[in-house]
Design a protein around this nucleic acid. Sequence first.
DNA 1: AAACTAACTTGCGGGTTGCAAGCAAAAATC
DNA 2: GATTTTTGCTTGCAACCCGCAAGTTAGTTT
Lengths: 113, 113
Amino acid sequence: MPASTRRSPCPIACGLDLFGDRWTLLVVRDLLLGAERFKDFAASPEGVPTNILADRLARLQEGGIVELKPASDGSRHPAYRLTKKGVALKPVMAALRDWGLEWEKGTRVMARK
Amino acid sequence: MPASTRRSPCPIACGLDLFGDRWTLLVVRDLLLGAERFKDFAASPEGVPTNILADRLARLQEGGIVELKPASDGSRHPAYRLTKKGVALKPVMAALRDWGLEWEKGTRVMARK
DNA sequence: AAACTAACTTGCGGGTTGCAAGCAAAAATC
DNA sequence: GATTTTTGCTTGCAACCCGCAAGTTAGTTT
């Protein structure tokens, strides 16, 4: 997000402009867990609507958090992957996970298939 | 949020159901910085609309992240404050802040007046 | 060639957002 | 003590966004 359209120079506000919604960080979570293809994200237990998913993947690309690995040899479709900037969200995700595990009863990390 | 209405048992998804939007974590940020009253939050540089602010404060109370300190002596109105569960979001906020500072050019932490 | 899968896009009704204005009670000022 | 200001909201409303379902396009399988 260009600095000119930001709500404020606050790094937190700036981050929320990019992923402040109910779905975006779940996409990041799945990427950290190894998801690469559209259907991988769509298969997550939260059941993100496909139009929302397409929109969020596009916005994450614009924001420099996700990039497309060009389709090589076998696979027709390109694969989504985190950029360095995206991988840098790991500590955020870990803190979120730890908070949820401690304070929201009944939550648990789910292994990928 | 009751476990029955959650999208999934994922601690991250569960957290996002509570504060997954563009404003809620800014309220938490302000609370960590010492904000206590409605006008304190409303005065933040992002300019949260007052109807949104009232809604988010109510939801944070429902979620057990914010509580009202009963109005004592001098002040007529009660003051908002973080619960233990709310204070436990500190590492999340710190990780968010650090990420923004490193990856979003031009962001900076702003001191309270 | 008929069916299937992957990755989206489109339509639509309903809910949320954000801006502005209004309002009641307490506090400050005159 | 009457008026103005401040505080903490609530209300109205247009525009936008969400989520569900269905449709589309292209390649893949049988």
